[in-house]
Nucleic acid binder design. Structure first.
Length: 471
RNA sequence: GGCGCCAUAGCCAAGUGGUAAGGCAAAGGUCUGCAACACCUCUAUCACCAGUUCAAAUCUGGUUGGCGCCUCCA
């Protein structure tokens, strides 16, 4: 299994610290509002990475935090006249609902920054003791960037470029920093803000220290994979490395994975620009499986453009796969032979090559776009080789294979067994009679009635099939 | 100003040295009372220029056009 590592800018064969086990940390959202579809990309991408690793037999300890102390949360709490906690807890719950809708599995642990303050203070103490941090006059604690020699190794920047190249940094350096690139580990409270007591001042932690500490607490000082959006490479992840490695004296994470951005009409989507859709917005128009499928059709390191047309295309594509699964199920239910015949054994063996194709693509830095094309090849193969004469065993093996691969992608194509509404059943029977009587007007009328209820009928050689509309 | 990424058919998107996967859409056809599903057929020399090579979408240099990070941000 190969992973593209931002640290080395190459694909590397994954070797875990502990055989058979993966320690993985994903930077989660700041919970001050409903998550948007940009937030959804890393959730979907890395959930798929996790699912694939588990499929390959690895045990994944998966941690995704919630950043629940932040300027915007505080701003929202002041606007509503409630505690910051009320805001963050509310949106953590909403985020979990959205994750469930996208079939993103809950992490092994979902730590929250405000519950880990003690660990943060410990790490800051250590950094001060080791000379990597200092306390300013007002109690702010800064990380001494120049004390960490490898600073810049993740984002491949060097300190001189950063210093000379950036105007705003130089201006803001007028504070009490020793160096404009030093960043905050602990900052003093302002009126009305949540705060914690500390040896330096009443205040709250800087953003970067949170992830360093939560990662260490739940996964240990050294982890296998640290992941997040590409915008976090600098400064967030760069700073995490500096803090963690300076404090712990060893490498922080082996592999750094970053997903590219989701754009709207070729423009960056951001909360500050206001051109964003929440996952909740999308869920009103589409089944969230469509959103998930849409995102997995591109490679996670390529920018992806979002639009209504593209969602429609993704929906139609997904339907093709679902149709095949439905069709196989229908044929199996009506098949008269149960055991497979020799020829079918050979066909099933051939079908396995699609699973191999799928795995080969996923092994190559989780190339979901390629992996999904293998699923389509399998779908084509199934459509071509399954018919009324096929055995039950053959049909269900094919169906299981498609379902299994889609399941790795985190998309459930197996419809739950639903009780056939007796009303629907009798309408279908009535329509069949009408067709027999060549009363096509009535037959079409019944079909329209069912269509309005979201039921699509399909007349096939083997009988009438029905399915619920996907949207 | 500094660092970096991308450019493949109408649209989306793999492929990163050996003569272009897959999906959507469109067109024609088979099946069918019609429709839908499915199947068959059909759509590209890979932004442009120059070079390296027996061989380049794939490597090198340049041009043009997009975009990202350097500030809260997935």
């Amino acid at each position: 299994m190969k992973i593209y590592n931002t640290l080395t800018k190459t694909k590397e064969e994954m070797q875990t610290i502990e055989p058979g086990k993966v320690r993985m940390y994903v930077c989660g959202p700041t919970v001050y509002n409903l998550i948007h579809i940009g937030n959804a990309r890393p959730m979907i991408v890395f959930d798929t990475v996790r699912r694939y690793m588990e499929y390959k037999g690895l045990e994944v300890n998966y941690v995704m935090n919630f950043t629940d102390v932040d300027d915007k949360i505080i701003k929202a709490s002041i606007a509503e006249g409630v505690d910051a906690e009320v805001i963050s807890n509310r949106y953590i719950e909403e985020c979990k609902k959205d994750m469930e809708g996208m079939n993103v599995r809950p992490a092994t642990t979902h730590p929250q920054a405000t519950l880990e303050i003690e660990g943060m203070q410990d790490m800051i103490h250590t950094l001060i003791k080791k000379g990597h941090a200092y306390v300013a006059m007002d109690g702010t604690v800064y990380f001494r960037t120049r004390s960490f020699e490898e600073y810049g190794k993740l984002s491949h920047k060097n300190l001189d470029d950063l210093r000379s190249g950036n105007r705003s940094l130089q201006v803001s350096g007028a504070e009490q920093k020793e160096d404009p690139l030093d960043f905050v580990l602990w900052k003093p409270k302002k009126d009305g803000e949540p705060f914690w007591e500390s040896d330096w001042c009443d205040g709250r932690p800087g953003w970067h220290i949170e992830c360093s500490v939560m990662s260490k607490r739940y996964l240990g000082e050294k982890i296998d994979i640290h992941a997040g959006g590409e915008d976090l490479v600098f400064p967030h992840h760069e700073n995490e490395i500096a803090q963690s490695e300076a404090a712990n004296g060893q490498e922080f994470a082996r592999y750094w994975m970053h997903n590219a951005f989701l754009n709207i009409d070729n423009k960056k989507m951001s909360k500050s620009l206001g051109n964003f859709f929440t996952v909740r917005d999308i869920s009103e128009k589409y089944d969230l499986r469509v959103l998930r499928f849409f995102m997995l059709q591109a490679h996670y390191r390529s920018p992806l453009n979002f639009s209504a047309d593209l969602m429609e295309a993704a929906k139609n594509s997904l339907e093709r796969i679902e149709n095949a699964v439905e069709n196989l199920k229908f044929l199996a239910e009506n098949s008269t032979t149960s055991e497979r015949i020799e020829k079918e054994t050979a066909l099933l063996q051939e079908a396995m090559t699609f699973t191999e194709q799928f795995e080969k693509a996923m092994d190559d830095d989780f190339n979901t776009a390629d992996a999904i094309s293998a699923i389509f090849d399998l779908v084509k193969f199934a459509n071509l080789n399954a018919n009324g004469e096929s055995s039950k065993e053959f049909l269900s093996e094919l169906r299981d294979q498609i379902i299994r691969l889609m399941d790795i992608c985190g998309i459930v194509v197996e419809k739950k067994e639903e009780m056939l509404d007796s009303q629907i059943e009798s309408l279908i029977a009535e329509r069949q009679q009408a067709r027999k009587d060549r009363n096509f007007a009535r037959a079409d009328e019944i079909r329209d009635i069912l269509l309005e209820k979201g039921i699509i009928l399909e007349d096939t050689r083997e009988g009438v099939k029905w399915k619920r509309i996907v949207d």
